[in-house]
Computed example of a mutant assay.
Amino acid sequence: MSHPLNTPLGRFGIVTSEDGPDGCLASIPAGAMTNPLTGAATIAPLAMLVDHVGGLVNHHRRQDDEWTVSSELALEVAPSALDVVATAPDVPVVGTSRPFGPKSDVALALCEFTHRGQTVATGTVRSCYISAPASLTPFPDGPTGPLPPGSLSDRMAVEVAESGGAAKVLLQHQDSVLNNSLNIVHGGVSAMALELVGSAAVNDGRGDAPMHTASLRVNFLRQFRSGSESRYVGTALRVGRRSGVADAQAVGPDGAVAIIARLTAYLADTR
């Protein structure tokens, strides 16, 4: 199922093939995308896909009076992932998910991501069940079709900001297409942005010796809304010769931290 282009899923070309409580399957065109902060190839679209397929299978396990919100997600990336996707950038990455363990007030989904049959990443999404909101913003109906042109930053409505220091910053502009049914920024969009600023922080000044993202762990603390002061901030905690660790935060228009992430990267080496 192709999603309307005026939805978060359609904006990034996600196609959902299977959709239910026992498992979900979807794909995203991850090739030819670059980090607006570095100009380098990025695995950030996989963060969007793990949020979608993992969150979706959890969502389908809800009761009639329940709704789901993501509380945390994790992505583990194979060292060769970028190279595998780059060899056939027009082929989408396919993500599958399945429930893990019994459902209670929370649920956990396991995810796997492949490119032409080769596993490039795994992931998990944990969702909390809340009382169904009295009102939800439905995804609008609209045309489906080829993915619209534009860079990753165009589709995410982000802009590189002058940080005045070592931190790497992306501003999150308002764009209603990027909001979920709770009318806040879609969790997958935020997860992508946190990967972008985190990986840029560990690669600052590395030139031709880049580190590739190996893991991304995201905790959703509160609702994140776009606005003139909304931003993603990545800060390197430690960068060595072969590995680096960064913290990343999504800061809302009120100045409160809404989402946090920890990113680990390693020197590119696919031997």
Rank of each mutant, 00 (worst) to 15 (best):
G207K: 04
G31S: 10
R225M: 15
D204N: 13
H186R: 01
M211T: 05
H59T: 12
S97W: 12
G150T: 04
P79A: 09
S2I: 09
M192Q: 13
V177A: 00
L110H: 15
H115A: 12
T119F: 07
A157T: 00
R11L: 01
H3P: 00
T264F: 11
A121D: 05
S153G: 02
L108M: 11
D83Q: 12
I260F: 08
A167M: 02
R262M: 08
A246S: 14
A200D: 09
H173M: 07
Q63K: 12
A250W: 07
V189Q: 00
G150Q: 03
A268N: 14
D22Y: 05
N180H: 09
I28S: 05
S71M: 15
E66F: 10
A30F: 04
A161I: 09
L49N: 04
A166F: 01
P138F: 06
V125S: 13
V185F: 10
P210T: 05
R262V: 07
G117E: 11
E66K: 11
E112K: 12
D22V: 05
A166T: 09
T114W: 10
A191M: 07
Q172N: 07
E72D: 13
N35V: 10
A166M: 02
P138S: 08
T38N: 05
S153A: 04
T119S: 14
R206I: 09
P140C: 07
V120R: 04
V94C: 14
L75D: 05
N6S: 06
L182R: 13
A40H: 08
V158H: 00
V50Q: 05
L46V: 06
H59K: 11
S151H: 00
P45A: 05
R11C: 00
V91A: 07
E195D: 14
H52F: 03
W67I: 08
